[in-house]
């Protein structure tokens, strides 16, 4: 098995997902199978091969430091689930 239930649980915490026990079990099996399949990349000795994070060879794409209009408050909060005054409101952030 390529991945343990504990590792799946750890990844779920990192990924900010509250998984049910049923989901956790199913994902452990599925991720195990997928990792077996994708794990073939380990066959290759790639020590001398540079990584590619992007297929396009561009550098120094930037913008001048000139302000452009921000959104109106109506637009900012158009989709907000909870608004208090001109703030977004969320349940208390715990420790």
């Amino acid at each position: 098995m390529a991945i343990t239930r504990e590792e799946v649980l750890h990844a779920a915490r990192l990924a900010w997902l509250a998984l049910t026990d049923e989901e956790l079990g199913r994902l452990t099996d599925e991720l195990g199978a997928i990792l077996d399949a994708v794990g073939v990349v380990a066959e290759l000795d790639l020590a001398d091969v540079p990584p590619t994070s992007h297929p396009l060879d561009l550098v120094n794409v930037w913008d001048e430091d000139e302000p452009r209009p921000s959104l109106s408050l109506d637009e900012v909060f158009a989709n907000a689930p909870d608004r208090s005054g001109d703030h977004f409101r969320v349940p208390p952030v715990g420790e």
């Binding site: 991945i3 997902l17 991720l31 990349v41 290759l44 590619t52 297929p55």
Partner: peptide, 24 residues
């Protein structure tokens, strides 16, 4: 979940890092 795992500490090189080299 798969992506989080592939990027997480201890697995990055074996999975995501390796995949980027394969991409090359």
């Amino acid at each position: 979940m798969l992506g989080t795992y592939a990027l997480s500490a201890g697995y990055y090189d074996a999975y995501y890092g390796q995949a980027q080299r394969v991409r090359t």
